[in-house]
Amino acid sequence: MSFIKPTFGHPALPKNKVGYRKKDYEGVISTLCAGCGHDSISAAIVQTCYDLSIEPHRLAKLSGIGCSSKTPTYFLSNSHGFNSVHGRMPSVTTGANLANKDLIYMGVSGDGDSASIGMGQFVHVIRRNLNMVYIVMNNGCYGLTKGQDSATADFGSISKTGVPTSFQAIDLVGLALELKASFVARSFSGDKQQLVPLIKLAMTHPGFALIDVISPCVTFNNGAKSTKSYSFVRDHIEATSALDFVPKEEEITVNYQEGQSLEVELHDGSIVRLNKLAKDWNPRDRQSALNRLQKAKNEGEILTGLLYMDTETKDLHRLLNTVDTPLNQLREADLTPSIEALERINQSFR
């Protein structure tokens, strides 16, 4: 049994713009079951942060409870981290973000963590448009507590228990669109080609960004009759578009036929190119996303890719009109009014 990863990496792999190797973004060796989709998502996060040349100390990863919520230990060992209480990651992130808006916030949760115990927190953090990436590692079960059906398990889907799910599923993506989340996407742990650019996009988005990632639980929910298994997802997957994320200052090399692709400039100058667009769908039109999602559901497809994005969105800090300086950097002198100021205030009430 290996407890420690070898320190050697591929000698030919380059360093990124800030001088780090991809290895520098990894965490300790995973203790999840071999083959768990969550590990692939961790790998996608590592790839993303390396590609975007994120300085590890500029990122905080936060999570709740569950196999999914354990993953922050398995990536970005050099970043800040907080493993909170079950379903409470959003409020802890809210606190952290209010205190220091200069960090990038990467929230990791599970379907149990978000759609059951944490549902209240989930909807409110959307409502507040907290500037964060919110990744749900969605396996349709409570992996950590031995595979009970979760609220995202599809009606009729059969996990290792052998009993079909008797309740209707909560679709986190549909819910987020309904709540007017400013960025909504869905992906699959087994499709890094899509997942990595989506996380890049979400990290660049200046508000709340949800990515619901279907992530098979190999141990409890990967049977032939589960709708969250590797094979079922592969057989039913559909994408709104193919995705190309071009960070600012980088040349665009690929050219696609007009009419089939769309280019969106992001607030920081990066560009996202969407190719092979789905019919009647526009990522900046929430209604078209809702329609497309509904259509996929009716046809028994799993719709993935970017669903909706509001590039002009205002996050919580802008809504609250906070000062530019992160609150945790404000010193006593900035916060305590002087005697004269107090005098002036009192005078105004006379």
Binding site: G35, C36, G37, D39, S40, S42, A43, G190, V218, Y230
Partner: peptide
Amino acid sequence: CIECDACMDICPTSC
């Protein structure tokens, strides 16, 4: 192989 990518993700030397 069920193509879960786990081997590719873990390999320390990206083989």
